[in-house]
């Protein structure tokens, strides 16, 4: 079953849910976010705000893979990435939603209540309370304030450019299920990963934990820089678990027990292929900058 992408237009207050094969090639996370941006720049691009919220196919199902990535492409043509913890990425993955793309801008402050089946557009009035939205025990919220924060605790950092789309925040609720073809094999892989907890660069603590992570580290609320290799960045694994999730046989085992068909050869060539696509995306942005400066749009 192909993962879904929820496309939301803030200007017209319309949404669509499409099935996509982009994860076949770019798995998820940062490479997938760039691939979607690349697609957008190639196809329907017009001068407007663009944002995407992205997850990976292992998110929440295996320990230390619980981050999500917010990509913002500003009107000034800069790409900014924000990575944080919490439960958003996992709940999206449990719903087979690999990305949420948000286009345009609202005239008034707006909040989105999202499930894999639909989107409600809510005007933010004085009495607004984001806790009123979502499904109990399977909701995640993101608020775009001075810092981007999810689940009232996990920071994605301070926006480096203004996100001028009037989106105050959103709630995502998980609906759906992830089939586990071989439960015993799955548990075996999970236990193996848990046994590598000492490889993490953080200590076990009692802070609120990201979904699926047994560590509860004191740094769980901190934003991540996203400077790890492309394979862990596609999985949105924790930066402190980089040594685990850049290991191709380990990642291959995780995919195998979920019945995902990524081959060993594919994983070997993944970084080169994704790196090329990301370079191509930046080239496109440079071309658009030149075009727009000639036509006076920038």
């Amino acid at each position: 079953m192909n993962p879904k992408i929820i496309k939301i237009d803030l200007t017209s207050r319309e949404f669509s849910i499409v099935s996509s094969r982009v994860s076949d090639q770019y798995i998820g996370g940062e490479p997938l976010a760039y691939a979607l941006l690349n697609e957008y720049l190639t196809g329907t691009y017009k001068m407007q705000n663009y944002m995407s919220l992205n997850t990976g196919p292992l998110n929440g199902l295996f320990p230390f893979t619980s981050k999500s990535l917010i990509m913002h492409f500003s009107m000034g043509m800069s790409v900014n990435k924000y990575i944080g913890g919490g439960s958003l990425g996992s709940l999206m993955n449990f719903s087979n939603v690999i990305s949420i793309e948000i286009f345009g801008e609202s005239l008034v402050p707006l909040y989105l209540d999202i499930t894999p089946r639909g989107v409600s557009f809510i005007d933010v009035l004085d009495s607004f309370n984001s806790r009123e939205f979502g499904l109990t025990g399977r909701r995640s919220s993101v608020l775009f304030k001075k810092t981007i924060i999810s689940d009232e605790y996990f920071s994605y950092g301070v926006p480096r450019t203004e996100i001028s789309n009037n989106l105050v925040g959103l709630t995502f609720s998980a609906v759906g299920e992830v089939p586990i073809p071989d439960r015993d094999a799955y548990w075996e892989v999970v236990q193996l990963l848990n046994s590598r907890i000492k490889e993490l660069g953080v200590k076990i603590s009692n802070s609120p934990s990201c979904l699926g992570c047994p560590v509860g580290c004191a740094l769980s609320h901190s934003p991540e820089s996203g400077n790890s290799p492309l394979l862990p960045r596609s999985l949105l694994s924790c930066v402190y678990a980089e040594s685990i999730y850049r290991d191709i046989p380990t990642v291959f085992s995780c995919f195998s027990v979920l019945g995902l068909g990524y081959t060993h050869d594919f994983l070997e060539s993944f970084s080169d292929m994704s790196g090329e696509m990301i370079k191509n995306t930046y080239n496109k942005i440079e071309e658009l900058k030149i075009k727009n400066s000639i036509t006076g749009l920038l």
Binding site: L61, F94, P181, Y186, P214
Partner: peptide, 18 residues
């Protein structure tokens, strides 16, 4: 961390379903 919730659903079926 909700690991218990994941395993509770997986105990009853071959699915993760919160």
């Amino acid at each position: 961390c909700k690991i218990c919730a994941l395993y509770a659903s997986l105990s009853k079926s071959d699915k993760v379903d919160l």
